[in-house]
Design a protein around this nucleic acid. Structure first.
Length: 840
RNA sequence: GCUGAGGUGGCGGAAUGGUAGACGCGCGCGCCUCAAGAGCGCGUGGUGGCAACACCAUGAGGGUUCGACUCCCUCCCUCAGCACCA
């Protein structure tokens, strides 16, 4: 008969909670193991099967590690600031703090119904003032270190969400969240200087265990390239244009310069020809997306100016074109049409000269396409004949000597735009004070203007003053209207008695920063707060940080590789530099679970109607079935479709375990067969190894095979052996294994047992089946005692009927009936495994 | 274009130098049953053959090896990330 999960699951969940089974102990002598899953956003949609994949599988790991004697920390919390709660509030008028609370309560109930072994004592919530107090505090550390600054910059503006976005949040020119094309706007924004950490964010990847593609994505995103900055003098203007290139070896091939529209405006000023001004104005109005869409056809305009080639002195025309990006390098390039695809296309279109300076070995057709590779320099004065690699060095050196240029490294990574003009986020703990500004000496004001310590409000300069530590948190005030504004001003600006505040320094009337932090702020350090969630003196006790860090295993979604993962590594490194955390890297190991697709193989979405609700699965089949299916459905790191039939298969397995238990416990005293004992010990080894190597699917497959074996052996299993099996099952099916464990009359929890030790002697078979090959082709098997010598195996194998005829001299082989002489050339013998007769 | 991961039965997938297809789904046959959509048992890569058995088969082609899904080379395709990044 089938077991009734409803009768057992709640019972054991309550029991575990009462026993405090999953509480991590600070400073315990056992080896620590910090297992982390990305904490969920508590949305109205509840937890979905994708959360289940991550949580259920890592829960099995946590449970296994506990049984292996580790002091396991497996925490959870809520990443609760963000737009959905705010949008919901705008629609319904219900305050986000209320919906957030409800959503958390619901999600928590779900997580508990899955029997996850989280340490609920350490639960955190990023919207809790006791939590975001420290988010604000860390922001102030960044500010004081010069890593946070406010600047007028072009930002990515989403007209639908009415907010600006970090570069990382813009995908193909569209808002990552809602898909609306992003506009360019100039706004005063807070930025975090993540670029200062670019090198370390790349280099330190060497020290951590992340999957290849995760590392590659981070490296690509940061996009470091080495080259040189070279200065070109503009004739008739007292200025220079600096360009960045990774190919100084092609310098002699530069036939014109191109400025981005943004840079052109700066360098050339107002007095340019009308068509140039017109081009610049139009280009600046284009959105990111428009620029990308028009990328196929390059446009540009001659500026009317010429620059001087630093080495040849030639007159090079200066063009303005929007294929040159303002945000990369210096916003200006030297165009080498002979050796760069884009420059080539541009030169062809506007009939600009193409000058070959790199000869390829195979010869090239420069009339049709540029040669982009490395080769030997020609037409390059004294550098002729050098190889590209050498020339890059020599030319750069030469430029440095003549003070015409210098070695340079550039990154695709931009500083992180950190302020949002929204309600539901952490207030940025900054105050702007006019009086403090006026009190400054002229020299101080000049320094401030050159630095970052001032802000213009309504045309007037204000000093930037930090909220002092004891005034934290700056609590988010209650507002009537959460709606973001068209102007991009935060809704907080309307809360007059919150905005107007006494300056903490001079006590005069000042105003608060009304922007809030992006939803990535709270998640950038949450794994630290789990270590000491109730500390009201520090973000965490240093000794606890020392004991628990780094996170041993962090699992989460691939979509966070260039967002959350990069941001939190950055914050951690800043904290490390401040001596506030003991490790350079937060996460020793990072894995990513594959996305769970709908039953139709498409992304799950309400509009497609292919969403599986985990609660329904749990209600019908139980948490153990749900958990095991999540782990069994396929390779953990691979995208995979939800299959209701597969759920059924796992459920049948658990039924068979239940049945086996009844049979086994009614047939006592029984003795396990040698064969079964061997299988059991192999199972222990396999489940342990596979679980730690995230091969959850094969771990479960092995358990299934074992139960099939038990059934075919008439359930003759010794009670001790059955107990071992229940212990092996426990990490994956915690409720059922606990029920059956107690049914055997055992005291205490199965989850408190130590993980069974597999016996290497038992795993070895007494008799082994040797595969027999002739010329590498499988022809039969022979059973011999383990460790049998080659001579014995050869002798036995030769007698096997299916093998014999391939070895007899002068006999005809079956293949095509061609007569062959079978002379034995040699034999390959792999002990306890295989014998291969090589016949000529 | 660059970077990364892949390509194995009807399907999800096992096996990283040694008997390809574990385990699950599906399908077929049988048992149980008034009857099953439940359960149990057996079978299940393809081709030929009554059968024993043989041959073919891991995207394509080549190579290394006694032996290749696995290692090397060339090519094709799929997925993911980035992309006018100079």
């Amino acid at each position: 008969m089938s077991f009734d999960h409803r009768k057992i699951e709640l019972k054991w969940q309550k029991y575990w909670e009462k026993e405090g089974l999953y509480q991590a102990k600070d400073f315990d002598k056992r080896l620590k193991q910090y297992i982390l899953i990305e904490f969920p956003y508590p949305s109205g949609e509840r937890l979905h099967v994708g959360h289940g994949r991550s949580y259920c599988c890592l829960d099995a790991v946590a449970r296994l590690q506990r049984m292996k004697g580790r002091n396991v920390l497996f925490p959870i919390g809520w990443d609760a600031f963000g737009l959905p709660a705010e949008n919901y509030a705008i629609k319904t008028g219900i305050h986000p703090s209320i919906t957030t609370k409800e959503n958390i309560a619901n999600a928590k109930k779900q997580a508990q119904s899955w029997g996850l072994s989280f340490d609920w004592e350490r639960e955190i919530n990023t919207t809790d003032p006791d939590y975001y107090r420290w988010t604000q505090w860390i922001f102030l550390q960044l500010y004081q270190k010069g890593l946070a600054y406010k600047a007028e910059i072009p930002v990515n503006w989403c007209p639908k969400d009415k907010t600006n976005l970090a570069d990382e949040e813009v995908v193909a020119g569209k808002c990552e969240r809602c898909g609306t094309p992003v506009e360019r706007r100039t706004q005063s924004q807070w930025l975090l200087k993540i670029t200062a950490y670019a090198d370390r964010l790349i280099d330190d990847l060497e020290t951590v265990d992340y999957r290849e593609d995760i590392k590659a994505q981070q490296v690509n995103w940061i996009g470091r390239s080495e080259g040189a900055k070279i200065a070109f003098k503009i004739l008739d203007l007292e200025s220079k244009i600096e360009v960045f290139t990774t190919r100084p070896d092609t310098l002699y091939g530069a036939t014109f310069l191109v400025l981005s529209p943004e840079r052109a405006q700066e360098v050339l000023g107002k007095g340019v020809r009308p068509e140039v001004e017109d081009y610049i104005r139009k280009a600046l109005k284009k959105s990111e997306l428009q620029r990308q869409e028009q990328a196929k056809e390059k446009t540009g305009v001659f500026s009317g100016f010429y620059a001087q080639h630093p080495l040849t002195g030639e007159k090079l025309p200066v063009w303005v074109a929007d294929f040159v990006l303002s945000g990369y390098g210096t916003g200006a390039i030297m165009a080498v049409p002979a050796h760069d695809q884009r420059d080539f296309e541009f030169a062809k279109k506007y009939d600009l000269p193409v000058k070959e300076v790199i000869k390829s070995e195979v010869g090239s057709a420069l009339s049709k396409q540029p040669f982009k590779g490395e080769g030997t320099l020609v037409n390059s004065g004294e550098f002729d004949g050098l190889q590209s690699k050498v020339a890059i060095d020599k030319i750069t050196q030469f430029l440095e000597q003549k003070k015409l240029g210098e070695r340079a490294i550039d990154y695709k990574l931009r500083d992180w735009v950190f302020s949002r003009q929204h309600y539901w986020g952490e207030p940025i703990p900054i105050i702007f004070c006019r009086h403090c500004w006026e009190r400054k000496s002229e020299k101080e004001q000049k320094e401030a203007r050159e630095g970052i310590d001032f802000v213009k409000i309504a045309g007037k300069e204000h000093a930037v003053v930090t909220v002092s530590g004891e005034d934290l948190p700056v609590e988010l005030p209650y507002v009537e209207n959460y709606k973001p504004t068209e102007t991009g001003e935060s809704p907080l600006a309307t809360v007059k008695d919150w905005v107007n505040v006494r300056c903490p320094i001079c006590k005069s009337q000042a105003r608060r920063e009304t922007d809030t932090m992006p939803n990535w702020a709270g998640s950038s350090w949450y794994f630290l707060r789990y270590l000491d969630p109730k500390n009201d003196k520090k973000f965490a006790n240093p000794d606890k940080l020392k004991y628990w860090l780094p996170v041993d295993w962090y699992n989460g979604g691939m979509e966070h590789t260039t967002l959350h993962l990069l941001y939190s590594r950055f914050w951690h490194k800043v904290l490390f530099d401040l001596g506030l955390v003991p490790t350079k890297e937060p996460y020793a190991r990072r894995t990513s679970h594959g996305v769970v697709l709908g039953t139709d193989g498409q992304k799950m979405s309400k509009s497609r109607g292919n969403v599986t609700n985990p609660d329904e699965v749990v209600a019908e089949f139980g948490a153990d079935t749900f958990r095991m299916y999540e782990a069994f459905m396929g390779p953990f790191e691979q995208m995979i479709a939800w299959d209701p039939k597969g759920v059924l298969g796992v459920h049948r397995f658990l039924d068979r375990v239940w049945k086996a238990h009844e049979e086994v416990s009614s047939q006592q005293p029984a003795v396990s067969s040698k064969e079964l004992e061997r299988e059991l010990h192999r199972l222990i080894k396999k489940v342990e190894e596979d679980t730690l190597n995230l091969k959850f699917n094969t771990a479960i497959a092995a358990m299934m095979a074992f139960i099939n074996e038990v059934a075919s052996s008439e359930y003759l299993v010794a009670r001790e052996d059955w107990q071992l099996f229940l212990e092996v099952l426990a990490p994956y099916a915690p409720h059922l294994s606990e029920e059956l464990w107690h049914d055997l009359g055992e005291e205490g929890s199965v989850h408190r047992q130590s993980w069974p030790k597999w016996d290497p002697k038992l795993i070895k078979e007494e008799t082994v089946t040797i595969a027999i090959q002739v010329n590498g082709k499988f022809r039969g098997t022979v059973a011999v005692s383990a460790g049998a010598a080659e001579e014995e195996v050869v002798a036995r194998a030769r007698e096997v009927e299916s093998v014999k005829r391939y070895l007899e001299e002068g006999k005809t082989t079956a293949a095509g009936g061609v007569p062959q002489k079978a002379g034995l050339a040699k034999t390959i013998f792999v002990p306890d495994n295989l014998i291969n007769f090589v016949v000529s």
